[in-house]
Design a protein around this nucleic acid. Structure first.
Lengths: 246, 246
DNA sequence: CGCCGGTTTGAGTCCATTCAAGAGGAGTGG
DNA sequence: CCACTCCTCTTGAATGGACTCAAACCGGCG
């Protein structure tokens, strides 16, 4: 990682997509004590049940949140990317009810949860920004619940592809129509509540129709609007609200 | 509703299950301006896409949050009961990405979202309490995602029954083993991502085994631990954290 | 009494799963 | 450089859990 900027700058940028901050607020966040670490794919950032002492900020790469159910099946609950804060909730509610795992090699900043809490309590706008970040996370979670609960496999996968593309575009990683999809078909299956075999067949169908193309770990979407229609994707739930005059 | 207490007292009680408040904080919440309203079953407290101007507190009865997907199918995202705040996120992030609907007759207090925001910003502990409330909500949402994504129908339904029982016990409504289940089988289907017919058959199987009994809108759980095992239910995700010394 | 929402039952179908095996690619070590 | 392993992707065939469609039942209520 080229440290031309403070490590947490990416996090500040993300927060400012939904909450206006002033210089002192930015400084307070950038000054948070943190530990930088690089983890390989499949490594755990946090394990369900461990003492939830840290919040994480992803500096590069991709990670996911998941739960294991009885029988060993896994459900991926969300995917996180550059600038995302995960486990911010630990600042106030250290449930530790799920694991965070690297999907690719990731660079992470671990911030002690109590320092995050102090910063949130000390500066209202910082608190507001962090809170909003967890609220956006919750909005995504609601959409995932509907996705795995009520959509068929084709729609589910198309929806996931839309979300990942749009979120990556939002943070300036790429164009929503051509982006790095870091997940294997098995991981896509765990994210959509399907089996790897069925994900494979569904992706093949989408490719055969020319809706998407895939090479290596890259997704190429021929017609974005078409994919959103297939995936019943309405971006409102990802929309940072227009900044209101306080 | 017997107004022997301020309407929002129930909400304060709920917040205090996870966050310690002082007298001024309590007073600030109780002083929030609000509109009381009684709505019949199936009435909407909020409709997806409307201007998200209010937060709601349920004073009595049950409500649910849901989304409609393409094709018209409905996914119930969460169930809310006495003392619960719904749409607290509107204070900071008025997405309005889902609807809130009454499951039974409900008494609700509507609080203008900007007043909630002001209270949260003015008093750090109030902000913290409200934030934690939304975080608890998010934890439940994660568990639902896993429930509909990776569990079979029997487990899914058993899990839902455990959650509803435990939450009602937590707020002192009843014993977790014998409680009012206000949902029809069709609503249970929308909550679990199944069809009404299949919910019916699954419930029958559970009854035939003597795991549960049902009469009218009441659930009777013969052996709680047994049901938690069937439902892969681990209450950790509902656990308010032990109050830490600041 | 007759309607109506909710529940129950049966039979047939289908979407997704399971099981199993093979193909392709990347990395490792002899 | 090739053999070997591991992981991911692919394909086929059979199975099954949940769905669809449709009708009947039931209790509450006007």
């Amino acid at each position: 990682l080229i440290q031309s900027h403070p490590a947490l700058q990416l996090f500040v940028d993300k927060l400012e997509t939904h909450t206006a901050l002033d210089d002192d607020d930015r400084a307070a966040i950038l000054a948070l004590p943190h530990t930088l670490r690089t983890l390989e794919a499949s490594a755990y950032l946090f394990r369900e049940g461990d003492h939830a002492a840290n919040c994480c900020v992803i500096l590069s790469g991709f990670a996911c949140r998941h739960k294991i159910v009885a029988g060993g099946a896994r459900q991926i609950l969300s995917v996180h990317m550059r600038g995302d804060g995960t486990d911010l909730q630990n600042a106030f509610l250290p449930l530790g009810d799920h694991s965070i795992q690297a999907l690719t090699r990731v660079e992470v900043a671990f911030i002690p949860a109590d320092k995050v809490r102090e910063a949130a309590l000390a500066r209202p706008l910082v608190g507001r920004a962090l809170w909003s970040e967890t609220l956006l996370d919750a909005a995504i979670q609601r959409e995932w619940t509907a996705n795995v609960g009520r959509r068929d496999s084709r729609t589910r996968i198309a929806h996931l592809l839309c979300e990942l593309g749009l979120r990556q575009e939002r943070i300036g990683l790429c164009d929503r129509r051509y982006y790095a999809l870091p997940m294997t078909q098995e991981q896509l299956a765990d994210a959509t509540g399907l089996t790897p075999v069925h994900v494979n067949r569904t992706l093949q169908a989408l490719r055969a129709e020319g809706v998407i193309a895939r090479e290596k770990r890259t997704i190429d979407i021929a017609d974005w609007d078409h994919l959103t229609r297939i995936g019943d994707f309405h971006m409102a739930y990802l929309e940072p609200p227009a900044h209101k005059p306080a």
